[in-house]
Amino acid sequence: MPQWTKKLAEKKTKRPASWLRGAAVVSVAVSLALTLTGCGNDMTAPSSARNAATTTQVARLGTVDCREVKCIALTFDAGPSEHSAQLLDILREKQVPATFFLLGKRHIEKYPELVRRMAAEGHEVASHTWDHKILTEISEDQIRDELKRPNDAIERLIGRRPTLMRPPQGRTNETVQRISREEGLAEVLWSVTAKDYTTTDSALIKKRVLDQAGRDGIILLHDLYDGTVPAVPGIIDALKERGYVFVTVPQLLAPGKAEPGKVYRP
């Protein structure tokens, strides 16, 4: 393990860490490195997905057209959490949709009512695997289990199966993509990270997001960290002032549609 990653993994927080808090520190740190350096796989930008849309898909386009307006997507990983209800209240007040990449074990299991609320209030409900295993380091059967179990749980709760997945650490390869395609899932990475696993300073989280934000951006946040949700209202207000329109990931790709087995990143 690189020394800088090890130091982040050993960093202590003010309150006792759960299994995910410790894992996510390493996860996001390594993910950032992969995002900056690339992971050697073909990726599709939102604009490319839109340009590839068929005439039929264009005819079905909703009220937000990201070909014409400056769109950006808020996404939240590793929930639901104890902070998700407050986050949903903020998003409802601000009239902003988001995409939630949910964990199964200890999250979907623990907060089923929040999963239902996310869907009912118009947010995109997606998967972040069942137990946050690194998909490139486990067997094909284990990959299928990590992808299938949260999809089954989400479908039971909201009546529809997720079509999007975010791999832990952003780690993917041809095997993960093939199995994702078999499970009907497209992978979604990101272009903006606040590194909210390193700080409880909401002002700093906001600054990091605003410094990186751009058209067609996909913002990665985690509502389980104490400083993140308080930063969200300021992030939304500042980006709206800059002329951004908030959309879900499917809306960002529209009139195109996420294709199973593909990896999407701005």
Rank of each mutant, 00 (worst) to 15 (best):
D145N: 14
K148H: 12
P167W: 15
W130S: 08
D196R: 02
P112Y: 02
R160Q: 09
R92T: 13
Y111S: 02
D141P: 00
D216Q: 10
I205F: 03
P97W: 09
T99G: 05
M165Y: 13
E93N: 04
I205Y: 08
H128I: 14
H107Q: 15
V125C: 05
A119P: 04
I108M: 01
H222I: 01
T198G: 00
I205V: 09
W190Q: 03
R156W: 02
I158S: 06
S191I: 07
A213D: 12
P97D: 08
V115C: 04
L189A: 04
R149D: 04
L135K: 08
R208T: 14
R161S: 12
R116L: 10
L221Y: 01
E113V: 12
E113T: 09
K105W: 11
V115W: 06
R215M: 06
K148P: 02
S202C: 02
L224W: 13
R181D: 01
K207S: 12
D211H: 10
E109F: 11
D141I: 04
A194W: 02
I205W: 04
I179K: 06
D152Y: 05
R149S: 11
L210C: 08
P162N: 00
Y197D: 03
K195L: 15
E140Q: 14
Y111F: 12
E113M: 12
P112S: 07
T172Q: 01
A126Y: 01
D211Q: 12
R144G: 13
H123C: 13
K133G: 10
L164C: 02
K195R: 13
D211G: 14
R171L: 04
L185P: 01
V188Q: 06
G104E: 00
R208Y: 06
G217V: 10
R116M: 13
T99D: 04
K94A: 00
G104N: 12
I179T: 09
S127K: 00
E124R: 11
I218K: 09
L224D: 10
E174K: 11
L103H: 05
H128M: 12
L91F: 03
H222L: 07
E174M: 11
W130A: 10
E109C: 06
G104H: 10
T163I: 14
D216G: 05
R160Y: 10
Q142E: 15
D131F: 02
K206S: 01
L147D: 04
R215T: 15
A203M: 10
V209F: 10
L210E: 07
R215E: 15
G122P: 11
L221P: 03
E187K: 03
T175S: 11
G159D: 05
I134D: 14
Q142L: 11
T172G: 05
V115G: 03
R117M: 03
A119S: 15
R92C: 07
E93M: 05
D211N: 13
E113L: 13
E187H: 08
H128R: 05
F101D: 06
L210W: 01
L210R: 05
Q177D: 01
N173H: 11
E182W: 08
D131R: 14
V115Y: 02
V96W: 07
E146Q: 13
W130F: 14
F100Y: 12
P162S: 09
R156F: 09
I218T: 09
V96F: 13
V176K: 00
H123M: 10
R181K: 15
K110Y: 07
D152L: 02
K94T: 03
R178P: 07
I205P: 03
N173S: 03
A194H: 05
V192Q: 00
